[in-house]
Every structure is written in C-alpha cells, then in structure tokens.
C-alpha cells in the first residue's frame, strides 16, 4: 500500500495518476464489493417499474400492516402499501439525492476551493472566512434551516445538503491546491505565459481531483444519511413519495408491532452507505493515501 504514496506525492500529471493504478482497483476487495453493490442497486433503481411487484403509492385499506408473506415479501405499511415496492422505488430517490448533491457540491466546492487556493492573498482570505463560517455550523443544522426556508421537497433537500456540504469540498480542494501550487510544472506553465484561469483548469484542478473524488464518495454517503434524517424529522421529501427516510419514519410508530418496515428501510440505507464508504476507502487507498483525514461518511 505504501508504495502508492510515491505516485501521488510526486508531481504526477493526471494521466499517469489515473492510468498506472487501474489494475489496483480490481485487486482492492472493498472497492470491488462497494462497486458491485452500487451497480446492482442502480440497476434496481433504474428498473424500479419492472422490479417492483406493486405500485409504491397504491393504498389498500383491507390489507394494512400485513406481516411478510409470499404476496408481500416485506409486508405492508399502515395504508396497505407494499413495503418492498416502496423500498425499490425509494432507491431511485436516494440515489438521485446522492448524485445531485455530489454534482452540485463538487462543482461549486472545487471551483471555490481552487480559486481560493490558487489566487491566494485577500481573495483567499475572504473566501475562506466565509467558508469557515459555513463550516462552523453543524452541517445537519444548516441543512435543516435551509429546508425550513424553502419548504420541504426533493429539490429543497438536495439544495440544502449541497449547500451544507460545499464548504467541506471547498476546504479540501483549497488545501490540496496549496500543496500543488509550488510544484515545478505549475511554475513552468506560469513562466511560459499561460493565463491564471488556464493554469487553474488545465493543471491545478485535474491534479487536485483524486482527493476530491474521495470526498465526493463520502459526500454521496452523507447526502443519503442526511435525506433520511430530514425525512425522519418530517422535513424531507413530501409523502406519499417513497423514500427510504419516509419509510423509516412511517414505520417508526409500528416499530414494535411491525418492526420490519423501519428495519428493512434502515438496512437499505446502511447497505448503500457502506458500499459508498467501501468505494471511498478503495479510492483513497489507491488514488491518494494522504487522505487519511477522510475517515468516511457521517451525518454532516
């Protein structure tokens, strides 16, 4: 494992950093497990209309709170809806939240962090003070307040978690850029007259990406946990939409009589988050072993 560190430590241009270690991914058991699980769940999510035995929204007041049976593998909820079908459809929303949060927080976090780190001086100071202010909030609290401002909806959840997470990406990006900046090829590019933005996009950002990708997998996991937490408090995606968080909070009142409702939804969340963490660990070990500080997902 330790020999990889030399690859990342030296001023490695992008292609080498990615290309030379491709086979290592395949040999990393955690990475492969995580990847396979995520691919399978993505297939289930995309094919939800095919895989789900029932509609996730159709209520049947004659079959409420049925225990697991051949007809309903995970039983039904208080409105007679099939729990398994709700979980299958819920995978879509959870993965959608994760993907959107990664996209938004990565785009803005990377840009903000890169600009701050590369520009230096007062630009860096102003950006980082603002960033630190947002970072000082317990992220979940910030997300909560943002959802309260916008009203509960899928968009609000995605936006709130993205805003709460972007400063974290920005902080990582900046510190990585700071270590890249003094490297010889950057100085050389400046010396041959490349513009600052060109240097930023051609050299700085691509070379700083490996650790940021690790952070991204963590942020995806965090986003899924945050969505569940917000839904649990009644601030998440609005019912009757099937999300894993909604299924847990629907089932909470029935945790003693019908424990499988909440437990199976919690299990789904855990499986995806574990897979994302395994993926993140694998990427960290192979791409950038210096990223030890990023010890996995957490509730923001």
């Amino acid at each position: 494992m330790t020999d990889v560190s030399t690859t990342a430590d030296t001023a490695a241009p992008t292609r080498r950093a990615f290309g030379g270690i491709r086979s290592r991914y395949l040999r990393h058991p955690g990475f492969m497990t995580g990847l396979i699980v995520l691919v399978l769940i993505s297939i289930v999510a995309v094919g939800a209309p095919v895989f789900a035995p029932y509609s996730p929204l159709e209520t049947d007041m004659l079959k409420t709170l049925a225990p697991p049976s051949a007809d309903h593998l995970l039983g039904t909820d208080q409105f007679g809806r099939d729990v398994l079908s709700r979980l299958i459809w819920g995978a879509r929303i959870s993965l959608q939240v994760a993907a959107m949060v990664v996209l938004i927080s990565l785009t803005f976090g990377t840009l903000i962090g890169a600009v701050a780190g590369y520009a230096g001086g007062w630009v860096e100071r102003v950006i980082m003070v603002g960033n630190d202010i947002l970072l000082a909030f317990p992220g979940f609290l910030l997300a909560l307040a943002l959802v309260a401002v916008r009203g509960s909806s899928l968009d609000s959840v995605i936006l709130a978690v993205s805003i709460a997470y972007t400063p974290r990406v920005a902080a990582v990006m900046r510190s990585v850029v700071l270590t890249i900046k003094p490297r010889p090829y950057i100085e050389a590019s400046q010396a041959i007259g490349m513009t600052a933005s060109r240097v930023l996009f051609v050299h700085v950002i691509p070379n700083a990406l490996p650790p940021v990708i690790v952070v991204a997998t963590v942020s995806a996991a965090t986003a899924i946990l945050a969505e569940a937490g917000l839904s649990y408090l009644g601030l998440g995606v609005q019912p009757p939409a099937a999300t894993w968080g909604n299924v847990i909070s629907d089932g909470q009142s029935y945790i003693i009589s019908n424990p499988w409702i909440s437990i199976s939804a919690g299990g789904c969340i855990a499986i995806v988050v574990i897979a994302l963490n395994l993926l993140g660990d694998g990427l960290r070990d192979t791409l950038d072993p210096q990223m030890r500080r990023y010890a996995g997902s957490r509730m923001l």
Binding site: A228, G229, A270, V273
Partner: peptide, 8 residues
C-alpha cells in the same frame, strides 16, 4: 457504525 443512520 458510520453507515447506519443514527436515529435508526
């Protein structure tokens, strides 16, 4: 431990 939702 880091993957299960804390409220769950």
């Amino acid at each position: 431990g880091i993957s299960f939702p804390v409220f769950w």
